[in-house]
Design a protein around this nucleic acid. Structure first.
Lengths: 118, 118
DNA sequence: CCGGATCCGGTCTGATACTG
DNA sequence: CAGTATCAGACCGGATCCGG
């Protein structure tokens, strides 16, 4: 089913930029982290976020972010098990990166806004 | 044969994060920008950078970054036309984002270094 | 040779359908 | 509601080809 994942994630250098981008250098990961920072913590909340992330991509990113130690999940309900997602300290420290990105976008892409809360 | 390519780049929200990530939210763009900041300005210099970007990807990224107004190219030689690539002010201002990324990588990925110069 | 375009196989994305 | 399965098509990455 899922024996190995050996595709494009191979990194040959210890460069901090490259390694960081291997973790969050795609279109969705940072958006998920951004939503988590804003208080969207359940699967549904994340899915109904503004950008409309496809459900399979969301599940995949949550899994990868968890494996990378940026996100942790904990059950908040037992009967059908339901999880709440939270950023670890490592994940939360990415907010400095997000802040820089937001700032750049505001200054360089006309018409964009901060949207810090739904 | 390739008039418009607008597949996954569709923007549904004016969110500054999402829009910024649509421009540089992939594995290579920020690395190219990083190399340009470091003084690698010809095609060959960029290609021989540490990460080993495939040539077609490099050409594609340079084109897209130019279209996005982050990079400009100018001929520095005529006989076979050779170009030198440079960051525009807009592109150069991304160094704040890169700085945040470097910092996060250094603090959170053991074994990574800054590699600020070859 | 160098800068870049083209080809092609394989991987991943993204929309939807489906399951519990 | 919270995810998994599926599948076509987009995209990546390596190799090769081409123009100056």
């Amino acid at each position: 089913m899922k024996p190995k994942k050996k595709t494009a994630g191979i990194r040959r250098s210890p460069c901090a930029v490259a390694c960081t981008l291997d973790i969050v250098g795609d279109k969705w990961s940072l958006l998920v982290i951004r939503d988590l920072l804003q208080g969207n913590v359940t699967y549904g909340e994340l899915q109904n976020s503004r950008e409309g992330i496809p459900t399979n991509i969301l599940a995949d990113r949550l899994k990868k972010l968890e494996e990378a130690g940026l996100v942790s999940k904990s059950a908040y309900q037992e009967h059908p098990v339901r999880y709440r997602y939270a950023l670890t300290a490592k994940g939360e420290s990415l907010k400095d990166v997000l802040r820089a990105i937001v700032q750049w976008g505001k200054e360089n892409i006309p018409g964009t806004v901060v949207l810090s809360r739904r």
